[in-house]
Amino acid sequence: MTKTVAIIYYNRYCYSSILAEHIGKGVEKQGANAVTYDIAHAGNSMISLNEADAIIFGSPTYFGSVAAEVKGFMDATVDIWNNKQWNNKVAAGFTHSSALSGDKLATLMTMFVFAAQHGMIWAGLDLRSCEKVKDYGLELNQPGSWIGLMAQSPKDGEKKPSDLETAEYFGTRIAKVTQKVGYYE
């Protein structure tokens, strides 16, 4: 049975959508279905999120936390929480900021706590900082994050190829974890 990985993110200046696209490529490379949603349209996607085997949350880091729109989405899941609809689903997260550090860890921790409160199974990134991986041309995970995907937002539209390759690898990893863990009600 083919697994479905939903990627829901907030996108103000389009880098979240670019990362989500590359994560989705990695998911599909592993043989799972990737479905992406912008949080602006989250109300229409809640049923699909409930049916997904895994959910990857994405937000830019603003002032050391998730964007207000992401927090609003989280707060709107109280009925899902009450009914344990995401219990035992695989969860993961990604973020980016213009600064190399930008306090991105705090953003990923917010997503992690949110997923834990929903009873989800968190999957992080399994790469050492600047690790060379077969089939990828660049050193991946340059920020050195294990809890989730961190990337540096491009300045002047310049994308960081290592971040994009890390995003694809991350999608492949989450799909693999989802296929191994499965979903148990």
Rank of each mutant, 00 (worst) to 15 (best):
V78K: 07
A52S: 12
T36F: 01
A68P: 01
L49P: 05
N33A: 11
A54S: 07
A106C: 13
D53F: 02
G137A: 10
H41L: 13
V90L: 06
A115M: 07
H96Q: 15
G124P: 04
Y136G: 08
L140G: 05
L127S: 06
A32V: 02
F63H: 14
D135W: 05
N88I: 01
Q85T: 12
Q85A: 15
T77M: 11
K84P: 00
H41R: 14
V90R: 00
C130M: 14
Y37T: 06
C130K: 12
L100M: 08
A32K: 01
Y37C: 07
F112G: 06
F114Q: 09
M120K: 03
A115S: 13
G58E: 03
Q142C: 14
L100P: 02
I55C: 03
G102H: 01
A76H: 03
P60G: 13
W81C: 04
V66Y: 00
L49A: 06
D75R: 11
G124Q: 04
S97D: 03
A76M: 11
G124C: 10
I121R: 05
M109H: 10
K71H: 09
W122A: 04
L125E: 02
L127Y: 06
K71V: 02
E51G: 05
G58N: 08
M46N: 11
S97Y: 01
K134Y: 09
M46E: 13
R128V: 09
N87C: 09
K134F: 05
K134E: 15
T107R: 01
D103P: 00
W86T: 05
S129A: 13
N141M: 12
N82P: 01
N50F: 03
F57G: 00
L125F: 10
Y136V: 08
T110V: 10
N50R: 13
V78L: 10
K71D: 13
H96G: 02
P143L: 14
A116M: 14
V78F: 07
L125N: 09
G137E: 11
S129G: 09
A34H: 11
K132N: 14
N50Q: 15
I56D: 02
K132E: 14
F94M: 08
Y62P: 01
F63L: 15
A67V: 06
G58L: 10
H96I: 00
G31V: 07
L125Y: 06
G58T: 04
T110G: 02
D79F: 02
